[in-house]
Design a protein around this nucleic acid. Sequence first.
DNA 1: GCCAACGTTGGC
DNA 2: GCCAACGTTGGC
Length: 155
Amino acid sequence: MAYWLFKTEPDEFSIDDLQALGETPEPWDGIRNYQARNLLRDAVAEGDEVFIYHSSCKHIGVAGTATVVRAAYPDPDQFNPDHKYFDAKAAPDNVRWYRVDVVFQRKFQRLVTLADIKVMPGLENMMLLKQGRLSIQPVTPPEWATIITTSETDV
DNA sequence: GCCAACGTTGGC
DNA sequence: GCCAACGTTGGC
């Protein structure tokens, strides 16, 4: 069992949208970066837990958690010429892009902001702070625990 | 809206 | 294979 952080722009898809789905799995698609793709394809497993991180928005930070319910499988959008994620170099026998399915787990009672993460002891090595642009990131168990605790604590 | 970081593309 | 140009991400 491993921990991850998935980024999303809440204007496109937020923790509230995920919560509204209830038990319905949501395909985490649109990953078109090789480093993120490799993590999705090779490392993210069913049963793993995921921080849902809101980026490029007014209130930046970790908004809640989800559970991976299906490991990587080919993202069908890469084969659809009408889709914005179409990739002409991809084919069913030459899959380039993958996605996983996640299910809502919880919404934090308060957002753990990027500013919180920057000053919280124990989080200074989070990949979020090291390599800001990666959209799928591993999270260590101590980092996971610290952020969960922070989400349950008033500031 | 700006701009730094950095991944991707394409000419050579 | 190098590297300049370009595009995207994402915080501020």
